[in-house]
Amino acid sequence: MSWLTDYVRPKLRGLLQREVPDNLWTNCDSCSQMALVKDLEKAQKVCPHCGHHMRATARERMAWTFDGGEYTCIDIPKVPVDPLNFRDSKRYTDRLKDARNKSQLDEALLVAHGKVQGQDAVVAVMAPEFLLGTMGAGLGEAFVAACRLAVLQKAPLIVYTASGGARMQEGAVSLMQMPRTTIGVQMLREAGLPYIVVFTNPTTGGVSASFAMLGDVHVAEPNALIAFAGPRVIQDTVREKLPEGFQRSEYLREHGMVDIVEKRSELKALLGRLIGMLTKQPAPVAEAAE
């Protein structure tokens, strides 16, 4: 045995076989290119290769929206846990428990208040990490609570939508949240408060058919799917090939359903300007780059 065999070779083998953390890299779900997780977090989860806006958690969006990432969450009203005693392959109560443990959220809507570009605002963010952001009685109560808080604070309400639609485990109870959330929007109208909706990918089903389409201003992230029924369902129904980009942000802007399509990195500044215009406040001063 030589010095190279006994010492150098094991050292080299150890360097080459060093374990790489599983969460160091990730793949873009659009272009499949690899990117460092740290770089993505700095870029607010926008792919550096193709510009694709990846899905974000509710807490990430809160941190990106409020000044300094500082905000105060509110407790949402309690609702019956399982009104229909629903069970498929798993009990609904067990699904809720798993979703709460994984997401650390009570429901698929997170509500908070704080400053956006120096201006008071209430922000409600749908959480795709909680049962795909589906709408049930808990989400309906949380949305109405956000509307009431905005009225109480005389502040605009900003809602980020991201949903797979109604929550099937709650049946008709889930569908009743469509008119209930509409009443919440009417509360804002009567108080003369701005209601800004930010569409993110995807916004579908009963959410897009209710409070998501009732904003004073509709903003969307690039290439977000915004629909009631998905494009595949529509294509099978009408038996015709759909236009390029059908039901995406840019297509809906061209057809008057969306007012502005904005990159995630510019979204906070845009919201600040909109709040200033809709409340007739002085234009906000942009935050210094960190």
Rank of each mutant, 00 (worst) to 15 (best):
L4T: 10
L4E: 11
T5V: 09
T5G: 10
D6E: 13
V8K: 08
R9H: 12
L16Q: 07
R18P: 03
R18K: 11
V20Y: 03
N23M: 05
L24I: 05
T26R: 09
T26E: 09
T26L: 05
T26M: 11
C28I: 03
C28W: 01
C28L: 00
S30E: 07
C31S: 06
C31G: 10
S32G: 10
S32W: 05
L40E: 01
E41C: 09
K42Q: 13
P48T: 08
P48W: 03
C50F: 09
A58V: 15
A58D: 15
R59Q: 15
R59D: 15
E60M: 10
R61K: 15
A63Y: 15
T65R: 04
F66H: 13
E70F: 11
Y71K: 02
Y71S: 01
T72V: 13
T72G: 10
T72F: 07
C73Y: 05
C73W: 03
I74S: 02
I76S: 05
K78S: 13
P80L: 02
V81I: 13
D82C: 08
D82P: 09
D82Q: 08
L84P: 02
L84C: 10
Y92M: 04
T93Q: 10
R95G: 14
L96R: 04
N101E: 15
K102Y: 08
S103H: 07
Q104S: 14
D106N: 14
D106Q: 14
L109P: 03
L110K: 10
A112T: 04
H113Q: 06
H113E: 12
A121N: 08
V125H: 01
M126C: 12
M126P: 06
M126S: 11
E129G: 06
E129K: 10
G133S: 06
E141I: 02
V144Y: 14
A145T: 01
A146Q: 02
A146I: 02
A146V: 02
R148Y: 10
V151C: 01
V151N: 00
V151E: 01
L152I: 09
L152G: 08
K154F: 09
I158R: 00
I158P: 00
T161N: 13
G165F: 00
G165T: 01
R167V: 07
E170W: 05
V173E: 11
V173R: 09
Q177V: 06
R180E: 11
T181Q: 13
L188S: 03
L188V: 03
A191S: 01
I196D: 02
V198N: 00
T200L: 05
A209P: 03
V217Y: 02
V217R: 08
A220M: 01
E221A: 14
E221N: 14
P222M: 06
V233G: 10
Q235A: 14
Q235F: 07
D236E: 14
D236W: 07
T237Y: 06
T237A: 11
E244T: 09
G245E: 05
S249Y: 00
Y251S: 00
Y251C: 00
M257L: 13
V258Q: 04
E262C: 15
K263Q: 15
K263G: 15
K268H: 12
R273S: 12
R273C: 13
R273V: 13
I275V: 11
I275F: 06
Q281H: 13
P282G: 03
P282T: 04
P282A: 06
P282H: 04
P284L: 03
P284D: 01
V285D: 06
A288L: 12
A288Q: 14
E290H: 09
